[in-house]
Amino acid sequence: MIFLSKSKLIALSIVALAATSSVLAYAAQDTQEANGDKAQKLKVKLPKQPEVWELYPTLDKEMYKPDFVDNSGLMGGSIPEDTGPGHMLTDNTMVNFLGFQGAYYASEVTGEGVQVIENSLNIAESGDWKALGLVRNETTEVVGQIKVEAVLHGADGSILETVKDKIEVESIRPGEPAPFELKANTPVEQVASIDWNITTDEVKQQAARDLHLKVYYELGFGKPDYKGQKREDAPYPYVMSASVNTLDRAIKQAELTAAWIDENGKVLWIEQAKLDPMFRNGMVEYSAAYFQDIVVTDPTVGPKLNQVPYLLWVVGRQ
């Protein structure tokens, strides 16, 4: 599928609505605070990246501790200054937090609800209108379920079609992105402008996000072997094998969401996977399981997926 470049997006307007009481109230408060200084953003508490001995409490912490603790900038300038607490994450900063891996996580938010990340938008260049992209929770509270709606307008301003998507990732934390995919029956060339409406439900039962993600391996599309091991899944689709570790909370089910982004930061593809049926009994505290392999056979996008970064989310249900 071919997608529009950012420059070809015409009259993109974004309307973010916070629909429920708790989020709406908080967003309003945030906006008030933000009104004092338009450039002022609100810092959020970032999720934890656990130490290896926190993931595996059977390990002897002393054996895994750092070779030294650098309080004085020895070998300073060694990593980007935007990767730690007190430093602002940019859209390009890769992070690995509990429940999330990848880019587009913000350490500061506007306080203005959930918003489309414009740079992530990938809109079809031909055929029927279709969009892949990310929203981000710009509040300082966890939001429950997010619904994204695109109102497609013609050149005369009339509404051509309205399409909606429910984002599968739940309990989206402050500053966290989440992926969506929208498909319309309207030819893309007829669409002159888009209004984005985003609604959120309050958190009814907060999903477990304090889960650790790992990718075991990615198998390249069309590649007959992986690290010298011959594959037996001809014609060799793209495959991602990923796993999850629980910490101090048991879960009954977990779902992985993956989004791949191209070199310009636009969402290329989105996939979901449930836990492998081997783990149908769920996961106890401090346990491990893996997801059903993500397999992509699409000959256009498949070859790209192991060449570009991915964003991963995991949501557990108790």
Binding site: F68, L74, G76, S78, G84
Partner: peptide, 9 residues
């Protein structure tokens, strides 16, 4: 490997 207190990583 070090713990870099400047960036908390």
């Amino acid at each position: 490997y070090k713990y870099d207190s400047a960036v908390g990583k």
